[in-house]
Structure formats: structure tokens, C-alpha cells
Amino acid sequence: MAGMEMRALRKSYGGLEVLHDIDLTIDDGEFVVLVGPSGCGKSTLLRMIAGLEPITGGEFRIGGRRMNEVPPRDRDIAMVFQSYALYPHMSVGRNMGFSMEIRRRPAAERAGPVAAAARTLGLDRLLERFPKALSGGQRQRVAMGRAIVRDPQAFLFDEPLSNLDAALRVEMRLEIARLHQRLGTTTVYVTHDQVEAMTLADRIVVMNGGVIQQVGNPLELYDRPANRFVAQFIGSPTMNLLDLVADADGLRLGNGVRLLGPAPAAQLGIRPEHLAVVAPADGEITAQALVIERLGSDTNVFTEAEGIGPLLARVHGNVDLRPGDRLGLRLIRERIHLFDAAGRRLPPMH
């Protein structure tokens, strides 16, 4: 096992720079999730870590050793691909032991680690099968088994759950978490799914446009997003953003409600779960319910707020509302986020 260091890492294709000055340190044994929208550069960064993409500039180290020019096979890493990338002409057992086979370890020596990994992943009975005879979840497990048998310094996962259905995704997510707890191997995991990021990560790296937006543990990102992008990307449903008007007396919302806060604030962010639904007369915002989504444990109330625009409130449990009903909304003050015109986070208002 080993930590990783990236210093001013850059990647260009021709004249187009897609990753700009990435600085990131990953501790030994840490589970780091790279998250961001499509095209943000997270997969490219992972491929640079793996050695599958050349590094244009900067320096990358694993366990203190410079890796920029080291080919993938000598980096001592294992990678689980989104497509699983199982060798179709090899049995499950041979797939899992392939990294040892290519290093000319005798079959007897390979059998132990393969059997142990197969037991861990519940693949004992499938070792003789070929990938085409496996279900999606089983293929995913074989891909993970192949990585485990490699016993690497670090695991790399490239959106490994995207091709699974929702139930299986939850199950495999749990399996990956348990595996990391057991093995404690440094892991870099790429996903665009923020639930995966929040549930798996020791630390999350939020990326956009080839730039790291924020690095932090899941709750830091949820409670103190560094900017408007992170605020909107982390948390589901998405945070509400309300425009603020500054006048001689301070800040006010579009509907005239006054707020205390630093003058440069241009927008106020409030997560749907931090908007309290109250009677119309008790709210600082009056709104009309448009759509009610009842999820059982929670209810999403999509509203059109007077003087403000669309607002989404999330209420724990059920709520007695129908589309067209009028309601009041209150902002939970200590949960308000403020952003300046450039989208940067400002100190809280209380």
C-alpha cells in the first residue's frame, strides 16, 4: 500500500488543455472519490494515475516514487473498468489469476489467491465459467476479484457500478465499502453519482472543467461547499439558489424579505431539506404547490414562490398538500449558504 501525490499535474490533447494544475495528496489507505459531471476530467485523471494516458506536465508519485514515465504494468496498481474488461476467452479463474500468470507464477501458486478472492466475492462455483455465461453483477465481481488477486498498492475504479441496475448497485456499493474496510488498500474511485461518492469516500474531490473545485470529506462538502458549483453538485435534490438584491439597508430576497449578511452576497443557497413548510400566514415566503412527489420517507414539494420563482422543499414523512395549494416556507437560518457574484462561498450570515 502507498499514498499518492500529484503536483501541478496537467493534461493536454494537442493545444487543448483538459486538466489544469491538479494538486492532490492521497494518504496511504485512503478511499478518495473523484466526482464531477461528464467531461470534467475525472476519468482522464484516473487514467493518468493508471499510466494509460501520458502526463503532459507536473509530477505524479506513488509511495514517493516518481511515476510519470513508468508504464502501467510497473505501477503496481489494479483497475476495475466500467465495462469490466474481462478477457472473454478465459475462464473466471484464469481471468482472476491473469496478473500472476503473466508474471509466470506457477499454477499451484496462483490457485491460493484466486480461491481466496473467489470466496470473498462468492464466486467459488463460477471459476470454470466464461464471462459470457455470467450476469452483470457476477462480471462486476470477477473484475473486482481480478483486482484483489493482484494485491496492488492501490485500487482504481472507473465508474464500476454504472452498468448495474439500481438494486445491484446498492449491493455492490456495500461490497466495495466492506472490501476497503477489510483490505485497507489506497483507492481512487471515479463516479458521476454523488450518492456513491457520499457513501464510499473518506474524501471527495469535486471536479469541473478540468479543475479541482473542492476536496473534503462528504459532510464538509455538504455543509460548507466552497462554491456554487459544489453546492449544486453535492446533495440531492439540488440546492435552491435565490437571487439577492442589495440596497442601502442591506440584502433582501426577491419578495422583499430582509436578511442580515455580507453586502457582496449575490445569491443565497438553501437545500430543499432546510426549507420548512408552514401555513401560508407563518411563512416568510408564500408559494403555490405545483407538484408533490411522495417518496414514503420524504415528500418533495415543487413550488412557485411569489417574487422569487421555483423553489423545492423536502419534508420528512408525508405532508397534507395538493397541487395548487398555497403554503408558507421558512428558511432555516443556520443552513443558509451565501455566494458572491463569482459563485464563491461567503462567510455564513449568523
Binding site: 502501467p72 504494468r73 483497475m79
Partner: peptide, 10 residues
Amino acid sequence: DLEEAAMIDG
């Protein structure tokens, strides 16, 4: 991906 997996495998 198959080639890349093989190259990572050694």
C-alpha cells in the same frame, strides 16, 4: 479496455 486491463495486469 481489454488491452488496457491486460497492460495494467502486467
